[in-house]
Design a protein around this nucleic acid. Sequence first.
DNA 1: ACAAAAGTGTTGCGATTACACCCATGG
DNA 2: CCATGGGTGTAATCGCAACACTTTTGT
Lengths: 247, 247
Amino acid sequence: MQHPVRNFNPHLSVDCVVFGFDGEQLKVLLIERPGSVQKSDRNKRYKLPGDLIFKMENLESAAQRVLHQLTGLENIFLRQFSVFGKPDRIPEGDDLNWLEHSTGVDINRVVTTAYYSLIRIDKSKTAKELLHNASWHNVNALPALAFDHNSIIEKGLECLRMAIRFEPICFELLPGRFTVRQIQILYEVILGQQLDNRNFRKKLLKACYIEKLDEKQSGVAHKPANYYKFNKKKYIESRKDLLYYNF
Amino acid sequence: MQHPVRNFNPHLSVDCVVFGFDGEQLKVLLIERPGSVQKSDRNKRYKLPGDLIFKMENLESAAQRVLHQLTGLENIFLRQFSVFGKPDRIPEGDDLNWLEHSTGVDINRVVTTAYYSLIRIDKSKTAKELLHNASWHNVNALPALAFDHNSIIEKGLECLRMAIRFEPICFELLPGRFTVRQIQILYEVILGQQLDNRNFRKKLLKACYIEKLDEKQSGVAHKPANYYKFNKKKYIESRKDLLYYNF
DNA sequence: ACAAAAGTGTTGCGATTACACCCATGG
DNA sequence: CCATGGGTGTAATCGCAACACTTTTGT
């Protein structure tokens, strides 16, 4: 938002649902709008990270730009999942005023392309280092957000749920080495359901791209868990001879 | 495209991949651009049906509008599947010239929201009744299209393939009553693979929303096939107690 | 020794696959 | 009576779900 006004396309934006996992809960990264704390929309002072795009900017680049500014990371895992373009999605009044004020652009309608993004909380700037107005929120306990951002998150989460059934993208949320338990909890919080640990383990470990490391937890007051890593190359190889449709 | 120029939003369009099924092949509806037959882009004279959207128009309404003009149908089955927004997706030159000329709008970049749509060929206007410049093309033998429309179709088809594995949306492509064989061929052409007819039949008919009718084919030189219909109400009912995630 | 989480196998069931012949009709 | 596609059943296999106890460590 520090860019010259004339470079923005006033009709197009991107919004990012940034998921993170702290080991227990699925988190979403929200921005607190600076000017909005005072008034009646106190309960809508949070929004998704996002921005208008530059006139000649790629949509995905715009999303990467927004996330880079926010987290300091590059090449973030991003997936486009929907477009939100109802003419009234930005209600007249405070939301609109804020947007026009903060972008300096006369806006009559914005279509936003929504991405979800998976990042490792430990790799991104820590809470204190994040831009002062960004913070992680539990996905199950979100405040009422600006614009239609609650529904964008809802839909993004649905798409994430669908996606993890088919592709091992969860690993984007985990540190490079992890225990089976960690992934299981991650699946559980994303799917919103408990999983049987024996069956989960079997299913997970039979995948050739999950590599057992020669390292164990230490300093824990119980049997230490083995560490594993995700081997992306093997995964991509294995996809080649995978038949998709089991009809 | 017969609307006053000033109502268009010059940055936003919708494009529709309209699928149809003639009993043998999966078809896509393409538009022939009027002015473009003469020159070097003779091989790119086809495009997807689509249009810029009005300044205050809903994206999906815009898609419905485009399809209504084209086919005469209302309430067409539509599903948004992606956004295409690379700044260079409309190459400088003929494509751009044509677009600026035909819309009367000065365009520097268009982001298009892509929908796929399923229609019953028999319900839509017949080939002769369709706007003179629209025609059905075999999805496996498409010409080189304008803009990035070939990749839009490709992705739309992928999404359709994914979708029919989970939802009985195929019926949108079939007449109200149909034989098992017809659906099987439809699945086969969408998935691009042969299916065992005994297994297919079992799987299909155990679904409670496929209703056997008291009608048979007549006038065929073999055992006449029974007709079935799709009961949408029963389908929606049955979804309620369906558990999605079989993890 | 105790608490706490890691790790391990088996069995039954339901779903999926593979596969070949008889049936009803029109010509 | 023949050609054509419609319609049917079974057996083997695979994958999934359910389920409880032993192991390893720190305190």
